[in-house]
Amino acid sequence: MLETVVPGVHAWVQPDGTWWVNNAGAVAGGGEVFLVDTCATEARTRRFLAAVAETAPGAPIRMAVNTHQHGDHTYGNSLLPESTVLIGQEHMREALRTDPIIDGCPPFWQPVPDWGDVTRRVPDISVRDRLTVYAGGTAIELLHPGGPAHTTGDLVAWLPGERVLFAGDLVFSGLTPLVFMGSVPGAMRALDWMAGLGPQHVVPGHGPLLRGDEIAPAFEMLRRYYEFVLETAAAGRAAGRTPLEAARACDLGEFAAWADAERIVLNLHRAYADADGAEIDLIAALCDAVAWRGGPMPTSV
């Protein structure tokens, strides 16, 4: 559903926020709309765009940004009007250009997602560090965290006047975060960086909105999770365990109730690869996540 964060700023929050079910957003001002992300499938993106059109009738979608390359935030790009200027971080643009999953999702998930009638659409403008755009009189700062975090090509959309932060997948609210295409320490640094902006409203990439006094505890719990991943990786490597073996041996503790718990395996693969100075094997990591669950990862997309 489309939730009003502050007047003119809206969040498209899709429960329950698990695999492929993302949040997006819209900023309406001056008779035009700026979008933050699309959705994974044709059906979900069309529902999002219809809700935006109802909220801002007759207002064209002049610009949009992708917070990173993952398909739950980008595959609906092709359903935007041709006149919409699409923006993304430079690493994100290249990753989406070469992403094979839009052409056919592998059977790591069940049911295997059906994207519908979407085609690959990459950003028209690439950003390295920062860019400020405007929806009417509303300033929107598109900011890169300075290094790998959730991915190598993350952007947030920060509205300094409204104190609203569209965090993309730098923030997961109430479910297991994912950093296997980024960096565990980088994701921790990104939390401090975002907190330093002083947001009063955070739209996470997945899960419920965070407001006011909810933000600091949510960031702290994410930080504890990343510390747990690093500690588990260090202990696993010292014991000669593989990432899958380390995941099976660990106690998720306070994080056990989070959805998508199998991401511990994927995040450990990233931590191991970084510690070894190696490239991560994405397919092997996904296979291990399926093995940890005992079957394909569930999705309701």
Rank of each mutant, 00 (worst) to 15 (best):
T152K: 14
V164Y: 01
P208N: 10
I215V: 11
P148R: 13
P185Y: 06
F180L: 04
P204A: 09
L209E: 05
G186M: 10
V184Y: 03
L155G: 03
I140F: 08
P177I: 01
D129T: 14
G207N: 04
E220I: 01
L159F: 10
E214H: 08
D213H: 12
E214W: 05
M188N: 07
E214S: 04
S183G: 12
A216S: 13
E220N: 04
L165M: 05
A167S: 15
M188I: 14
P204G: 06
G207A: 04
M188S: 14
D169A: 09
T152L: 12
F172H: 12
P217A: 11
I140Y: 08
L155V: 10
F219L: 15
A157R: 08
G136V: 09
G205L: 07
P160M: 13
D169P: 05
G137S: 15
T132I: 12
G196I: 07
T176K: 01
T132E: 15
P199N: 10
G174M: 00
H144W: 15
L175I: 07
G186W: 03
G161Q: 04
Q200W: 02
F219H: 13
E141F: 03
H201A: 11
P204H: 04
S183T: 12
T138M: 14
F166T: 08
H150E: 11
T152M: 11
D129K: 09
G196N: 09
L165K: 05
R128N: 05
R163F: 03
G212H: 05
A139R: 14
F172G: 00
L178T: 00
L178G: 03
A216C: 06
M181S: 14
G153S: 06
G196D: 04
G153K: 01
T138R: 15
R163Y: 01
P217M: 08
A167P: 01
D154I: 11
P185R: 06
S183D: 13
D154Q: 09
D154L: 11
G212S: 09
E141A: 09
L178E: 12
V127F: 02
Q200P: 03
F180I: 01
I215G: 03
A218S: 15
G146Y: 12
L178Y: 11
G212M: 08
L143P: 02
R130C: 11
E162N: 06
G205S: 07
P199C: 03
G205W: 04
V127Y: 09
G153Y: 00
L178H: 07
W193Q: 13
D192S: 14
R211G: 00
T152S: 13
R128P: 01
A216I: 07
G146S: 11
E220T: 13
V156I: 15
L159I: 13
A187N: 10
V171Y: 00
T152Y: 12
R130S: 15
H201I: 00
P177C: 05
G147P: 03
R211L: 14
M194N: 10
H201K: 00
G168P: 10
D154N: 15
M188R: 15
L191D: 11
I215W: 03
S173I: 01
A167T: 00
F180Q: 09
L197Y: 02
V164E: 07
P217T: 10
A139H: 06
G212F: 04
A216E: 14
A135N: 07
M188P: 04
P145C: 13
G198V: 05
D192W: 08
P199I: 07
P148W: 01
P160G: 09
A157S: 15
G212D: 12
L142E: 00
D213A: 15
